[in-house]
């Protein structure tokens, strides 16, 4: 995982999936850093699981603006399965060309 902070924005580039192991690291980062927005680049992630979704929802609820870059196909599907679409309207998604 690579990350850097500019002003109140934390930018994280994941080298793995957004699942329990990476969520634990992200939680530590978010708890330590004082941030207003979080950008997670998921270009290299192939899956996002319930732990990833729980993390995103919880951090958003705490008032942090989240932007996901290139979430994998499964992301939307999991949000649908968990019926969270209407609760995640403030989530920003940027889609660039995936590798």
């Amino acid at each position: 995982m690579e990350y850097h902070k500019t002003d109140q924005m934390l930018f994280v580039k994941l080298k793995s999936d957004l699942t329990y192991p990476s969520v634990k690291k992200l939680e530590t980062l978010v708890n330590v850093e004082d941030i207003e927005s979080l950008v997670i680049d998921l270009t290299e992630a192939k899956i996002v699981d319930s732990e990833g979704i729980r993390f995103i929802y919880t951090v958003m609820k705490e008032g942090v603006q989240i932007t996901l870059v290139n979430p994998p196909y499964i992301f939307d599907k999991i949000v649908d399965i968990l019926k969270l679409k209407s609760y995640m309207k403030d989530l920003k998604i940027v889609r660039e060309e995936r590798r």
Binding site: T19, Y20, K46, I47, P72
Partner: peptide, 20 residues
């Protein structure tokens, strides 16, 4: 690839639960 992502995600959910 999409079906494999679904299969791997289901597996991930299961073993995360087992591990934790």
């Amino acid at each position: 690839e999409k079906e494999a992502e679904e299969f791997a995600t289901a597996f991930d959910e299961l073993i995360t639960d087992v591990v934790l």
